[in-house]
Design a protein around this nucleic acid. Structure first.
Lengths: 141, 141
DNA sequence: TCTAACTCCTGTAGTGACTACAGGAGCAAG
DNA sequence: CTTGCTCCTGTAGTCACTACAGGAGTTAGA
């Protein structure tokens, strides 16, 4: 059994984040020592590592909770996992597209931005009435 | 002069967001009617629109505040704007790169994920000890 | 045995940029 | 005069943490 510091080291999850996961019920509560310190089994550390890897893949916590419950009841979990992973991939692709469009917009705006004039052409065109811009608000990162 | 509803329509900024910007001092407080309702001039609406466009370009509020103060004192603002825009572009490019790597990782993980087995190979490899994964935590969106 | 440094505990608040809601008041049209 | 719309303030929730205060236990060396 390992203290929270060791569990953090071995799983790659920040100590504060481990306690947060426990508070939120994302991972089960570990046992405690006589003095009230958390004690983690290798399996519990593996779960923490799993959560971290999923977060590194940018899965939201809600999906990770689904994954964790699927690993317990192992009937046909794979199909569900694939669907969740594909939806997530779609989101990632959409974000990449958005960012790419955004980059183009910024590049063309800042291109005129080094003539010696006092008023900045970039700020100017962002202020003007005629400028396009999307009203969707979907461009957020 | 326009009420907050009209200002929202014309600027594309949500009513609640306009009040939030005011609370946080991001835009100046507008005048009020006798009954205490906010009244916006065309210029104030233009400022809201400017903020929205910058947000659409994913500039953080802190940078937008710098932009707004630069538009008031107009000496040599362009150089500063260009630097801020270029830093922002670098961040966007970094995000695109991260997401692209992440997509590859997810694709290769989910590729094996449709054989008819009960245990999911994707979840399996995320659980295993030997799996790589980055410890940097920089993959977050 | 003492002490310093370290780790751990709980609880709370802060992050960014909003969004949602409760509970009330004004205002415009029929 | 009523119905429905817009507006007001203030507070709390979102997501996934992160930071800090103030205290208690633990470990290693002198």
């Amino acid at each position: 059994m390992f203290t929270i510091g060791k569990a953090s080291e071995q799983s790659g999850v920040n100590i504060e984040t481990i306690r947060y996961y426990e508070r939120e019920g994302i991972v089960p509560k570990p046992g405690r020592s006589a003095a009230g310190r958390r004690l983690y089994s290798p399996d519990e550390i593996a779960t923490l590592r799993f959560v971290r890897r999923c977060r590194d893949l940018s899965f939201p916590i809600s999906i990770i909770q689904t994954f964790l419950s699927l690993t317990e009841q192992d009937d046909r979990s794979c199909g569900e996992v694939k669907v969740l992973a594909e939806n997530h991939l779609d989101e990632i692709n959409a974000k990449i597209e958005n960012l790419t469009r955004l980059r183009e917009a910024l590049l063309s705006l800042s291109a005129n931005c080094d003539d010696g004039t006092a008023a900045c052409p970039m700020l100017d065109s962002l202020m003007k009435d005629g400028f396009g811009g999307d009203k969707s608000g979907q461009n957020r990162l």
